Amino acid sequence: MKKIKREVRNSDIREILKRRGIRHYDLALECGVHKCTLSAWLAQPLDNKHRERILDAIDRIIKANS
């Protein structure tokens, strides 16, 4: 069976989460949404509003853990 390679959306955000050890659950909590909602956001191209919301939440998590 041939593997189909698919594009990973929002790979920049996913890489930040991986590098910093931030779990999707913690990010969803900081964003004020359910983890399924965050997963749905990351599965599609983000508009500026959602991208800023996620990046701001990541910054708050990083600062809280410093």
Rank of each mutant, 00 (worst) to 15 (best):
A40T: 11
K2E: 01
E52A: 15
A57V: 04
Y25K: 11
R9P: 01
I22H: 00
N48G: 08
L27E: 07
K49E: 02
V8G: 03
Y25C: 03
S39R: 08
T37D: 01
I54H: 00
E52M: 14
G21M: 13
V33I: 11
L17C: 05
L38K: 14
K5W: 01
I22L: 07
L29G: 07
N65K: 12
C36T: 15
N48V: 14
W41K: 05
A57F: 00
C36Q: 15
R6E: 15
V33R: 09
I4E: 02
I4D: 06
R23Q: 13
L29H: 05
S39V: 01
E52F: 09
R6A: 01
I16D: 05
Y25I: 13
K2T: 05
A40V: 02
A57S: 15
I54L: 13
R23Y: 11
G32H: 03
E30N: 07
I58R: 15
G21I: 11
E15L: 05
M1W: 09
R6G: 14
A64H: 12
V33K: 11
E15C: 00
K2D: 02
A64P: 03
R60G: 00
N10Q: 13
H50P: 04
R6P: 10
N10L: 15
S11G: 06
S66D: 08
K35C: 02
L27W: 01
L17H: 09
I58C: 03
H34R: 14
S11L: 11
L27K: 04
R14I: 09
N48L: 13
R23E: 08
R19K: 14
L46I: 08
T37M: 08
Q44G: 00
K18M: 13
E7I: 12
K63I: 05
I16A: 12
K18G: 13
R53E: 15
Q44H: 15
R51Q: 00
S39F: 00
I62L: 13
K63A: 04
H50S: 04
S66Q: 09
I16T: 01
N65H: 04
L17N: 05
A40L: 04
D56W: 03
W41A: 02
R60H: 01
R9Y: 13
K18V: 10
Y25P: 02
D26L: 13
P45W: 07
N48W: 09
A28L: 06
C31Q: 05
G32Q: 07
K2R: 09
S66T: 11
H50R: 12
H24V: 08
R60S: 04
I54Q: 00
L55F: 10
S39C: 08
